[in-house]
């Protein structure tokens, strides 16, 4: 199997072909963020619904390569129902994994663990991170008491562009 085939393993392709929680809207949404990556032309809308301190629902929509779309799909399954502070911790866990570190919360990352190999493809890391960075921003937008926020990832969607 070539490195590329390892990258595009079946689990990732499945999330790409049949995305979970991909929708143009979310009933009872509390925050909506729009993230774009001008380098790739990727666009992502992400909506969250937060109830009693938990991420009650999340939906993403947009346009992008298979890695960005599949990663967002796997993310929604891994984070839904968790307390928001725990979600932010998992976002950090995924981000560290994209920088080549071994994740400590394998089980919690669930299907998102399949994106571990993306760390070997530096130009694709920003694709895999797009949904996760949007999720973190959506939660923080909610915590600030704001409803919407738009972010352009000039440096390729990494963590230090806020």
């Amino acid at each position: 199997m070539s490195e590329l085939e390892q990258l595009y393993q079946e689990l990732i392709l499945d999330h790409y072909r049949s995305p979970r929680n991909r929708a143009p809207g979310l009933r009872g949404e509390d925050a909506h963020v729009h993230h774009s990556n001008p380098l790739c032309g990727d666009e992502m809308d992400l909506r969250v619904r937060i109830r009693d301190g938990r991420l009650d629902g999340v939906a993403f929509d947009g346009e992008g390569c298979s890695i960005s779309q599949a990663s967002a799909s796997a993310m929604t399954e891994a984070v839904t129902g968790r307390p928001v502070e725990d979600v932010l911790g998992l976002v950090e866990e995924f981000r560290r994994m994209m920088h080549g570190e071994d994740p400590a919360r394998d089980d919690d990352l669930s299907d998102a663990l399949a994106f571990r190999g993306v760390a070997r493809f530096p130009v694709r890391v920003k694709c895999a991170l797009l949904g996760w960075m949007a999720l973190r921003d959506a939660i923080e937008t909610f915590q600030r008491g704001a409803g919407t926020h738009a972010v352009t990832h000039d440096d390729g969607g990494d963590d230090d562009d806020r």
Partner: peptide
């Protein structure tokens, strides 16, 4: 998506540019 085309082509030794 063009990125996915570019990655598959690259793996086969075919170099194209993808993006804007």
């Amino acid at each position: 998506h063009p990125h996915d085309i570019g990655a598959v082509l690259g793996d086969r030794g075919v170099c194209v540019r993808v993006g804007h």
